[in-house]
């Protein structure tokens, strides 16, 4: 069994959250980037409000450029990739060099595309996404400790639920994500808040149509998801 400290547990969870944040927001941005070709606009102000991040962008182009590539912008995808890599670096002996390498390559790809002479950004972003997906497959295949794998996955579950609930993206996956999350919790050894867990189980029952009158607001559900783990 791998010896995982409390600090490392925290990092594993946030590694899961950050890599999923990069993967999800990238997909969303690629879709939005494509949409702009037809409608010539993207409501980045609403997007920022939904995610609870500061809108310090000058216009749509500035948003796309800085939100994706700017390492100095703490809200950016590049910063999230840096956070994923940073957490991964201090977990090298737990997750392995070959797994970590995909995060490193994702960061390099983002940096290459941020150079002034880079072209075909849409294609380049696909490289970043490919690396994130390879990271996901690699850690799932090569980390032998089930607890470690499940802590990362729970981080990713929470991030996916949080993003989908906030932005209204891929809402159809929410029931599946809730199921996965609840099944994984006992396999992590992590402590969870009783009230938050109760709210999520209640929401699961609503999804299953077992107790449709026992409604829970989207906001309360989001708060329960965000505060589920007491790390």
């Amino acid at each position: 069994m791998d010896y995982v400290s409390i600090n490392k547990t925290n990092r594993l969870f946030w590694l899961g959250r950050y890599y999923e944040r990069v993967a999800l927001t990238l997909q969303y941005m690629m879709q939005s980037y494509d949409m702009v070709i037809d409608v010539d606009t993207f409501d980045y102000d609403k997007y920022c409000r939904d995610l609870g991040i500061e809108n310090h962008y000058e216009n749509m182009d500035d948003f796309f450029n800085r939100y994706i590539f700017d390492v100095e912008d703490y809200c950016s995808i590049r910063s999230s990739a840096e956070q994923a890599l940073g957490n991964g670096m201090v977990l090298r002996e737990t997750i392995g060099s070959r797994t970590l390498a995909y995060l490193q390559m994702a960061v390099y790809s983002l940096d290459e595309m941020s150079l002034p002479d880079s072209k075909a950004i849409g294609l380049g972003l696909q490289d970043v996404l490919d690396n994130m997906m390879a990271f996901r497959g690699c850690y799932d295949s090569y980390i032998s400790d089930e607890n470690v794998r499940n802590i990362i996955k729970c981080g990713a579950n929470v991030e996916r639920l949080s993003f989908c609930l906030r932005v209204g993206y891929m809402e159809d996956v929410i029931p599946v994500e809730v199921d996965k999350l609840l099944k994984r919790i006992p396999r992590t050894g992590l402590q969870v808040g009783a009230l938050q867990l109760q709210s999520i189980i209640r929401q699961q029952r609503i999804f299953e149509g077992k107790n449709p009158t026992d409604a829970i607001s989207k906001e309360d559900f989001l708060v329960a998801v965000e505060n589920l783990f007491t790390l």
């Binding site: 010896y3 400290s5 409390i6 600090n7 490392k8 670096m89 201090v90 090298r92 002996e93 392995g96 060099s97």
Partner: peptide, 17 residues
């Protein structure tokens, strides 16, 4: 530090650990 921990199969720890 991290690479040798992986190679030697030993635990990498910081002061808080």
């Amino acid at each position: 530090h991290s690479f040798l921990a992986e190679q030697a199969g030993v635990v990498l720890a910081e002061s808080n650990d």
